[in-house]
């Protein structure tokens, strides 16, 4: 099935179910006294199914549909919980502090899910466009290689031209850049000004160099661009990994609060009617 067909099918099912839920809720709101129980249990069931996806990933050899099918379900069922949640709280903003935290947790899980979906669809294309594909685990080793190459060029320039201009410039301006991952936030926002700033400084140094030194500095500039590409991959790939460290703990927190919520509702069931 093409991705567009997949999307069309998912959205159609989502819209049909959402409309049905809203209409049924509107129709029975006056006559059913336990409607909040029904929507609450429904919401909890769907959330539990959504949370199972993480468990499914731990047992890839089980014949339990493919991970892609699970993710499609996860996305559209996740969106559907928004509708169920809305009818469950009867379109009102919760007033109590506990209900407020619970609602806030739900919204945070939802928001982190949206964020994850957005970056999962946009960052891969950006990484492909940028090129220089590298495994995340290999980045520190590649970074070290680039640093060593840059240092070697800077040191060799001293012997070749009997001048320490490049070596001093390297120590002052470039060493910190090569030492670790840099400019994560700039890379996330596709802002190239930090590396342009460094490259401008490199251009400025040209006027103090002879021809041989300029050639050396050009090689260092090429390494700067490579390092910037590596940092870009590091920042974007890290973001793709980090968001799950927000989404999953929030989900577990939501589940814990939900259990407490269910307990409280049944302990004081008169209030739920």
């Amino acid at each position: 099935m093409r991705f567009s067909q997949q999307r069309g099918f998912g959205l159609t099912v989502l819209i049909i179910l959402s409309v049905e839920i809203v209409l049924l809720h509107w129709f029975y709101a006056g006559s059913m006294t336990h409607l909040a129980y029904l929507t609450g249990w429904g919401l909890l069931s769907v959330i539990l199914l959504l949370a199972l996806y993480n468990g499914r990933k731990k047992v890839p050899f089980f014949p339990l549909l493919s991970s892609e099918e699970w993710l499609q379900f996860h996305i559209y069922a996740g969106l559907l919980t928004g509708v169920i949640f809305a009818v469950h709280i009867s379109y009102r903003i919760p007033t109590g502090w506990f209900q407020g935290i619970l609602a806030a947790l739900y919204l945070l899980v939802m928001a982190s899910g949206f964020f994850g979906l957005f970056i999962s669809r946009s960052i891969p294309k950006r990484l492909t466009t940028r090129g220089g594909e590298v495994l995340f685990e290999r980045i520190p080793a590649v970074r070290r290689q680039l640093q060593e190459q840059a240092e070697k060029l800077a040191l060799e320039s001293v012997g070749q031209s009997r001048s320490a201009t490049i070596a001093e410039f390297y120590l002052r301006e470039l060493k910190p850049f090569f030492e670790g991952a840099q400019n994560c936030t700039s890379h996330w926002s596709e802002n190239a000004s930090p590396v342009n700033h460094i490259l401008t400084k490199i251009s400025d140094v040209h006027r103090y160099l002879d021809e041989q030194e300029r050639a050396t500095l050009e090689k260092i500039a090429a390494l700067v661009r490579q390092k910037d590409g590596l940092d870009y991959h590091y920042a974007q790939q890290m973001l793709l990994k980090l968001w799950l460290f927000v989404h999953i703990p929030l989900t577990y927190s939501l589940l814990v609060f939900t259990v407490v919520h269910v307990t409280l509702v049944f302990a004081f069931s008169g209030g739920a009617k």
């Binding site: 991705f3 990933k57 014949p63 892609e68 993710l71 999962s120």
Partner: peptide, 13 residues
């Protein structure tokens, strides 16, 4: 029984 686990485990197709 799932066939190639790699493709079966890819969430994004």
């Amino acid at each position: 029984i799932t066939g190639p686990a790699c493709a079966h485990a890819c969430p994004h197709g």
